[in-house]
């Protein structure tokens, strides 16, 4: 996936979060997750590809820094929701990606879904369906880096990095260095 370079076409770009902001937001979310869960017991972070997965890995490392008994590699998984989407027929075919769960599985665990942007809520709905097919967690929570509003389903995030009031004509682009070689959140609006 190529991210178009800024300042092309008739769009205006505005950087709303830089790398330090993203790092602070993720540090806070990691602490919130530990606080809500009263520790790291039974915790599993499931990242939703593409960018939710590296964010989940970062959260796990931050959690491990606070609680040294945690092995960050053991609590992170990747949940592909492609085949559970409700808009499959409206887009060109998307090949599914891998789903990888921690070796402990997710049965009776506290699963925190991690994604970059929360918008319509439809991806999270698909993720909830996908979870049902791979196990039965005790609790499912949701952590997102950016909540931009415009929900179309009754879904709410438990942990939010930044609330971004946007118009639906704007686009929110999250770039994560593992994928895009830079950490930033940009709002792209019509000129």
């Amino acid at each position: 996936m190529s991210v178009p370079s800024p300042h092309t076409g008739g769009s205006v770009f505005r950087t709303v979060l830089g790398d330090a902001d993203i790092d602070r937001a993720l540090t806070r979310i990691a602490h919130e997750i530990l606080e809500a869960n009263k520790g790291a017991e039974d915790l599993v972070l499931l990242g939703i590809p593409r960018r939710g997965f590296p964010i989940a890995q970062r959260l796990a490392r931050k959690i491990a820094r606070t609680d040294p008994t945690v092995n960050p590699g053991r609590i992170v998984g990747r949940l592909d929701v492609t085949m559970f989407r409700d808009d499959l027929r409206k887009h060109p075919t998307r090949p599914p990606g891998p789903t990888e769960l921690p070796s402990s599985g997710i049965d009776d665990k506290v699963v925190v879904l991690v994604d970059d942007v929360l918008y319509s809520g439809r991806t999270i709905r698909a993720a909830l369906d996908a979870i049902v097919d791979v196990g039965r967690p005790r609790i499912v929570r949701l952590a997102v880096l950016v909540d931009r509003g415009h929900r179309e389903l009754p879904i709410r995030a438990d942990h939010v990095g930044k609330n971004l009031p946007t118009s639906s004509a704007e686009k929110v682009r999250v770039r994560i260095s593992e994928i895009d070689s830079v950490d930033e959140v940009i709002i792209e609006g019509p000129a």
Binding site: M1, S2, V3, R89, P92, T93, V117, S120, R173, V174
Partner: peptide, 22 residues
Amino acid sequence: LYLLLSGDDSAQPTPAQEAITV
């Protein structure tokens, strides 16, 4: 079956559409 039936290949994706992660 999935690759032939799941999507709508009549419209070509624009790069911008592909880049949206919602």
